[in-house]
């Protein structure tokens, strides 16, 4: 099977903390895998390892069959990333930020196309030519989504992407993920939002103290059952 994302015994250890212990994970194209867990459970570490931002202590992460550590730049062609708090360049407008990040990813869009991406991400038209320094967190998040979508990546790595979004925008984001997933884009999303995970995820994984303790298909659980399962692990 060709996995678009794969972790093999992936382990990350800091001098005084075991951040991730022996993660084994495979994600197929079109799959939306949601990582649930408390702060410090290892969700962001997993995403950072796939991005190559940190080096594993042992084991390996693969993107589209390429080992991340050996191909730190090449693998990023296949990845788009939205952090929990999208920080952009405050002296540039939303439009300029999108143009910058897209050009770094190798895409030279016309202005109309950039405006289209921002519009679909839900950024108000009046804001696109305003400096990002004046944006709310939610507006920055929307530009972050536009940046990720405009990259046309095979994989989206999302670290609490709906943090700061209003319910309407969160719902639109969920629809966008569903649409991208249907087009074959794989998604690995770290989230605290159990209901959003149930809504958009094809599988959920529960992490605790650096360990992936359970993986379930979302179709097999309703939201309450998922919440109960999650709380059970957290209380244990």
């Amino acid at each position: 099977m060709n996995y678009i994302l794969e972790a093999r015994d992936l382990r990350k250890e800091y001098p005084n903390k075991l951040a991730l212990q022996g993660l084994n994970l495979q994600i197929e194209p079109g799959e939306v895998f949601c990582l649930l867990g408390q702060n410090g459970a290892g969700k962001s570490t997993t995403i950072n390892l796939f991005l190559g931002f940190i080096a594993p202590t042992s084991g390996a992460a693969f993107v589209n069959g390429m080992e991340v550590a050996a191909n730190p730049l090449k693998i990023k062609e296949h990845l788009a990333y939205i952090p929990e708090n999208v920080m952009l360049y405050p002296h540039l407008t939303g439009l300029e930020n999108l143009a910058l990040f897209s050009s770094l990813a190798g895409f030279k869009y016309k202005e109309a196309e950039l405006l289209d991406y921002l519009h679909h991400a839900g950024l108000p038209a009046e804001a696109v030519r305003r400096r990002v320094g004046t944006y709310s967190k939610g507006m920055r998040q929307k530009v972050g989504i536009a940046i990720a979508v405009a990259k046309h990546a095979k994989v989206l790595l999302l670290d609490e992407p709906t943090s700061g979004l209003d319910p309407k925008a969160s719902n639109e984001f969920s629809q966008l993920l569903t649409q991208l997933s249907a087009e074959g884009t794989a998604v690995l999303m770290a989230t605290h939002d159990i209901f959003r995970a149930k809504e958009v995820g094809t599988r959920v994984g529960i992490m605790r103290e650096g360990e992936l303790v359970d993986v379930r298909p979302t179709a097999a659980l309703n939201a309450q059952e998922l919440e109960q399962l999650y709380l059970t692990y957290m209380h244990n």
């Binding site: 991005l51 990023k76 990333y81 990813a105």
Partner: peptide, 8 residues
């Protein structure tokens, strides 16, 4: 991080 995630 966002910058580097673009592949530079």
């Amino acid at each position: 991080k966002l910058l580097l995630s673009q592949g530079v």
